[in-house]
Amino acid sequence: MKKTLLAFALPLVLTSQVAMAEVTLKMPGNFEILAAQHLEIKKATKTVALPEGDQLVLVRFDSPTNPHSTGQSMGYVSSQPILIRFSANDGEVVELLAPRVDTQQDVKRFAKNPSFELTDTAGKSVSFDSEKVVVSGSPLMANYNDILAAQIAPSEIQTLPQPAVITASSQSVSTVDINQLTPAQADQLMKDLYQDANKKRRKEFIRWALGL
Rank of each mutant, 00 (worst) to 15 (best):
M1T: 07
T4H: 10
L5T: 06
L6S: 06
F8A: 03
P11L: 00
P11W: 00
L12F: 03
A21L: 02
V23K: 01
T24L: 07
T24F: 05
M27Y: 00
P28N: 14
N30W: 09
N30R: 14
N30K: 11
E32H: 09
E32K: 12
I33V: 13
I33D: 07
A36P: 08
Q37R: 08
H38L: 02
L39G: 02
A44E: 15
T45L: 12
T45Q: 12
P51I: 05
P51S: 09
G53N: 05
D54I: 00
Q55N: 11
V59C: 05
P64W: 04
P64C: 13
T65P: 00
T65Q: 08
N66Q: 08
P67V: 12
P67Y: 02
G71R: 11
Q72M: 14
M74L: 15
M74H: 08
G75I: 10
S78P: 03
S78A: 15
Q80V: 06
I82F: 08
R85T: 13
F86E: 02
F86Y: 14
F86L: 07
S87I: 03
E92H: 00
E92N: 04
L97D: 04
R100P: 02
V101C: 06
Q104L: 02
Q105G: 01
Q105I: 10
Q105N: 05
K108Q: 12
A111R: 03
P114T: 07
P114K: 08
F116V: 09
E117F: 09
G123Y: 02
G123R: 06
K124R: 07
K124C: 02
D129T: 11
D129L: 13
S130F: 10
E131H: 04
V133D: 00
V134Y: 08
G137R: 03
G137K: 02
L140R: 13
N145L: 09
A149L: 08
Q151R: 12
A153S: 11
P154A: 13
S155Y: 06
L160G: 06
Q162F: 03
Q162R: 11
P163A: 05
A164W: 01
A164Y: 01
I166C: 05
I166P: 11
T167Y: 13
A168I: 03
S170Y: 07
Q171K: 05
S174I: 11
S174G: 13
V176C: 10
D177N: 15
I178Y: 12
T182G: 11
P183N: 10
Q185K: 15
Q185D: 13
A186K: 13
Q188E: 15
Q188P: 04
Q188Y: 04
D192Q: 10
Q195P: 00
D196R: 06
D196V: 03
K199T: 10
R202E: 10
R202P: 06
I206G: 04
R207Y: 02
R207D: 12
R207H: 04
R207N: 08
W208V: 04
W208I: 06
A209C: 05
L210R: 11
G211L: 05
